[in-house]
Structures are given as C-alpha cells and as structure tokens.
C-alpha cells in the first residue's frame, strides 16, 4: 500500500508544470524515504531528477517499494481539476495497475477521486556521480528565467562563463549578439535577491537555449536557483522545493567538434 498526502496540491501542480515540457511520461519510484523520479528527455541531452522526501508529506506510507509509470500530460490534466489549496492524496495498492488521486477541498465538503492507469515504462536509469563543481552560482530564479528567455531570442545556444567578477551569459545569432553580466551582490537582508558565486576555477560552457528555457518552468517553485558547472561535465540547475525536496536538471554542454 502506498499513500502520500499533501495539503497543498499547488506544489504538485508546479512540479508537473516544471517537468512536463521535457518529459512525456516518467516513472515515480516510491520508497520509504520518499518519491523519486529520474528521466531523460527524448533526445537524451537533458535529465530531470526529482526528489520528494517522505518527511515533507503530511502523511506518508510506503510498505513496499514501488515504481509507478505515469503519463505526465494525463497527470497534469487530473491536477488541473484541483484547486491550489486542495489537499491531495496519492494512493496505490502494492501490485496495482492504477493510481488514485484524491482531492479534498478546504471549505466545502467536496471530495474528488481520479483514477489513472499506470504505464509500464522501460526507462534507463543513470548513475550520477557526486561531483565537486568549479563554480556554483546562486541567483534569483526569476532573473535566470528572464535572462534565458531574453537571450534565446538571439541565438540557439547560450555561453555561460563564470569568473570571480561575476557571471556572463552571452549568445550570438543572425541579428547580432547579446551579453548579460551579473555581478555578485552582498545583500544579506534578502537572500532571495542575492547573487552569490562560489568559484574554484573559472568555467565557460555552452548550452542549448531550448533546454534551459524548459528548466525555467520550475521558477514558480522557489525564488532561488542554483547553477553548478565544471569543465566538460553537465550543468546542474537546481530548484529547492521548500520543505519537500528538490528538482534538479542536468544538461550536457555543447562542445565544438574537432577538425577530424
């Protein structure tokens, strides 16, 4: 028996909005420690890794580890039927081929049940090594979304270069080029507006705008985003989900091909 209850269905809605751009379907791995999801997009260029800890739920029970393959578009449809402050309960039997979402409205005595068919997904699971990154940038998530959106009008890829002075986002295309520089700020009053850079070595990497844009769909989850970069390893874009866990995106860098 699996049962997870969350008083704010809005959080789940936001999580779904943040991943359904990249993934059509995904396996939710449920265990005693919580719910995990790891999946690559169709092109295998980016990866989504979601962790929801069991302590973050208002009620959590998972007798046996189980993997639920779900169609994210269908799941999103179901969650659209709920109000943001509805309490949601996700339920599944141990060997079931369906999952049930129950929404309880705060004010009225209204309970809605949605049962969804599960899918058998044969997904590849990647082993992600723990890495020390050369640069770790924390910045307002809204600012990051804005920069990515603005720059993707000009080119297909964005160069992110991080130095002691700050971070530079740049791109170029047919009409010309664009650069956005942000410097480290030390506004300790509002951590959420702070830009902080933890740098061991300067790094410059190129990434496809298309994916970065999809990542920024997670912006409503939290005010701060963390970008971790090292030479020649995938970028990690991390959004914390307050009290519940985190959502991480990995993106392979674009690399100049050698002459031969």
């Amino acid at each position: 028996m699996f049962e997870a209850r969350l008083t704010q269905s809005a959080i789940f809605k936001k999580v779904l909005d943040a991943i359904k751009d990249l993934l059509n379907e995904a396996s939710f791995d449920c265990s005693e420690s919580g719910i995990q999801l790891q999946a690559m997009d169709n092109s295998h260029v980016s990866l989504v890794s979601l962790t929801l800890k069991s302590d973050g739920f208002d009620k959590y029970r998972c007798d046996r580890n189980l993997t639920m393959g779900m169609n994210l578009a269908s799941m999103s449809k179901i969650f659209k039927c709920s109000s943001n402050d509805d309490t949601v309960t996700i339920k599944a039997q141990d060997d079931a081929d369906t999952v049930t979402f129950m929404f309880e409205a705060k004010k009225q005595d209204k309970i809605s049940d949605y049962e969804m068919k599960l899918m058998n997904l044969d997904q590849e699971h990647l082993g992600i090594p723990e890495t020390e990154f050369s640069c770790v940038i924390k910045m307002p998530s809204g600012e990051f979304a804005r920069i990515v959106k603005d720059l993707s009008q000009f080119g297909e890829s964005i160069v992110i270069s991080c130095t002691k002075e700050g971070v530079k986002f740049s791109t170029s295309g047919d009409i010309g080029s664009a650069n956005v520089k942000i410097a480290q700020t030390s506004n300790f009053d509002k951590e959420e507006e702070c830009v902080s850079i933890d740098m061991q070595e300067p790094v410059t990497l190129t990434f496809a705008c298309q994916y970065l844009n999809s990542f920024t769909k997670a912006t409503p989850l939290t005010p701060v985003v963390q970008l971790s970069m090292s030479d020649n390893v995938p970028l990690v874009v991390e959004y914390q989900i307050p009290d519940l866990g985190h959502l991480r995106y990995y993106l392979a860098p674009k690399i100049e091909e050698d002459e031969n």
Binding site: S33, S43, L47, E124, L126, G127, P129, A252, E257
Partner: peptide
C-alpha cells in the same frame, strides 16, 4: 564557424540497468 553539437548525457553518466543503489542510499 565551428559546428557546435549537443552532447548526450549518457556520454557523461553511466546507464544503470540494474536497480543497484549507491553506497550513500
């Protein structure tokens, strides 16, 4: 202009076919 190609994540992270857990988990 150099062709810049998207690389796949599988070039960086190994695909785990089994459900083995990491030491940390």
């Amino acid at each position: 202009i150099k062709a810049i190609e998207n690389h796949k994540l599988t070039e960086y992270f190994p695909v785990r076919r089994s459900v083995r857990k990491t030491t940390k988990t």
